[in-house]
Design a protein around this nucleic acid. Structure first.
Lengths: 128, 128
DNA sequence: GCAATATTTCAACACTCGTTGAACTATTGA
DNA sequence: TCAATAGTTCAACGAGTGTTGAAATATTGC
């Protein structure tokens, strides 16, 4: 994946409205949602929603298909996964032990953010 | 994870400089890098780098540790994984078959990718 | 103490982004 | 054809972001 694409994806996901829309589409799966459904679900004015849907489609994170007078949007999950792969490429200096340690410390559904207590912990104090 | 945190993470990753810095730190692993090393590796002026490092640390994506007159930065990989989990929560209308289809053809680059398992098994389906 | 090194803060500027109402296009149903 | 519905485009404004040089802070070695 090219860096430019990853940047566009992250930029798209950095807006509250677009993040909500994308997650809604991810949860909708193949079925997707038409613009009106999205607008109703998220309580976003049509004008504004259209603006953000354009952003999501332009970076490839969503696709559109016309259905009569409706526009059906769907999440591009492969692109999302590609972007994640790009972000984690060659991680941990290619040391599998490091990766294992880091993953162990992170239950996939952690309720609290480990904001300022990250990898630094692994160095010096608790590890030999 | 709170939506606000995920937003800050994506916003942080939506800048070319910050994306480069974060990926560099991910690749550096536990060792991390001091600001000067990052500046040299990416050819970013110190003033500008400092600005972006602040952004990365404020959202929790990087940590700082003082080492004499140096500042050592490290990637917060658990936070990154939490964010990914947040993004993919309840995907595909909780239909495991959909997830399996979508994940097919996705590059399995980093050792981190297995952490995405919840995507495919959101509904307790044993697969593999 | 003093100079050199490493990094951050500050002020200023151009630039981009998000939101909104009004106007526009396209499709449906009568 | 006409009115209603679904959605997008446009113009404008305020707010936020990225970059830079100059100045400030902190640490090291002499």
């Amino acid at each position: 994946m090219e860096k430019a694409v990853a940047l566009q994806v992250f930029e798209a996901l950095s807006s509250p409205v677009r993040l909500d829309v994308f997650r809604l589409l991810v949860q909708a799966g193949r079925a997707g949602k038409v613009a009106g459904e999205i607008a109703e679900a998220l309580d976003v004015p049509p004008t504004n929603l259209s603006f953000h849907l354009k952003g999501l489609t332009q970076c490839g994170l969503a696709s559109v298909e016309q259905e009569g007078r409706y526009q059906r949007y769907r999440a591009n999950i492969p692109l999302m996964l590609d972007t994640i792969a790009f972000l984690t490429a060659n991680c941990c200096a290619d040391d599998p032990d490091e990766c294992a340690d880091l993953r162990r410390g992170t239950p996939a559904a952690a309720p609290f953010l480990p904001a300022l207590e990250p990898v630094a912990r692994a160095r010096g104090t608790s590890r030999s």
